[in-house]
Design a protein around this nucleic acid. Structure first.
Length: 276
DNA sequence: TTCCAGGACCCTG
DNA sequence: CAGGGTCATGGA
């Protein structure tokens, strides 16, 4: 099955190799990855995207959702470009998009990201999928479902090299098995959503915001990681010891309704050493 | 060898 | 609630 999407200003490279998702790999001519239970190959055209469904099935509507093709990108860019630094970042990084990923996978992935780096996180997430997810074809695996992770012993999950996060992952999956918090988040206002997410083991403010931004597309959420903090201190005169909420609030006021989008442009540039 | 990486947790003061 | 130590793992 093949889908084509006409879209301008969409860079697969910038989007899929950014720090928002962890399972895409670039091969000759395209990107390969797993979305839900489908193995996809995605190629960049000047006029848009071509998605080949290699295994499993997925609808056009689901792809539009996943790749975030249903947003007004021009509106977002013009909104965040009112800030000069962001405007500059957008010039160099135009085409970067925020995906709309599956919440559970996003949640576990960002638990894995804590006190780690992106490359290492990718390995952990891939290990979890290979070891505990349903195999699709001979080279890919779906991300494991809630029950598959909840049922693991600490010893078993250590095989995925997730380190001390293993306990958090098992506990969080167990909590979700008892109560469908990720569904409740969907209908909750931001403050309540953060409260629900941070009630999960291994989830603090930063991971909660990543989930809200990358899985629920709440573009006003601004994950304050070490990079964003550096940016806010060096470029916006914020205090070294400002707390999380203060920095996020400042970002929302400074960058506006799509502050999360703005922060990711700055983040991607900063971590490449192109911002300072 | 030591330090650090998209932090969170737990314990003190 | 602010400030510390601690937590596996891999790469520089």
């Amino acid at each position: 099955m093949r889908y084509t999407f006409e879209v301008k200003d969409y860079s697969l490279q910038k989007t899929l190799l950014s720090g928002q998702c962890f399972r895409w790999q670039e091969k000759k001519g395209g990107f390969w990855g797993v979305v839900g239970n489908s193995v996809l190959s995605v190629k960049q055209l000047s006029s848009g995207l071509v998605v080949d469904v290699y295994k499993g099935s997925i609808s056009r509507r689901e792809l539009i959702s996943y790749f975030g093709l249903d947003v007004d990108y021009d509106l977002i860019l013009s909104s965040i470009s009112r800030d000069e630094n962001v405007k500059n970042a957008v010039k160099k990084y135009r085409g970067y998009r925020i995906l709309r990923q599956e919440p559970f996978e996003t949640l576990i992935s960002f638990i894995c990201s804590t006190n780690s780096n992106i490359a290492n996180t990718r390995a952990k997430v891939e290990n979890l999928a290979c070891l505990f997810g349903t195999q699709i074809g001979d080279q890919f695996s779906a991300f494991p479902d809630v029950k598959a992770l909840a049922d693991l012993s600490e010893e078993e999950i250590m095989k995925a090299k997730v380190g001390y996060r293993g306990k958090f992952i098992i506990e969080t999956a167990g909590q979700l098995l008892k109560r469908d918090i990720l569904n409740e988040v969907d209908g909750s206002k931001d403050e309540k959503a953060v409260e629900l997410l941070t009630s999960l083991s291994g989830v603090g403010n930063k991971v909660a915001d990543c989930v809200l931004l990358f899985a629920y597309n709440r573009f006003n959420r601004v994950p304050i990681d070490v990079w964003m903090k550096r940016i806010l201190i060096k470029l916006y005169g914020q205090s070294e010891k400002a707390g999380y909420e203060k920095l996020e609030k400042f970002s929302q006021i400074t960058f506006g309704k799509y502050a999360g989008y703005a922060s990711h442009f700055l983040f991607e540039l900063a971590r490449k050493g192109e911002l300072f």
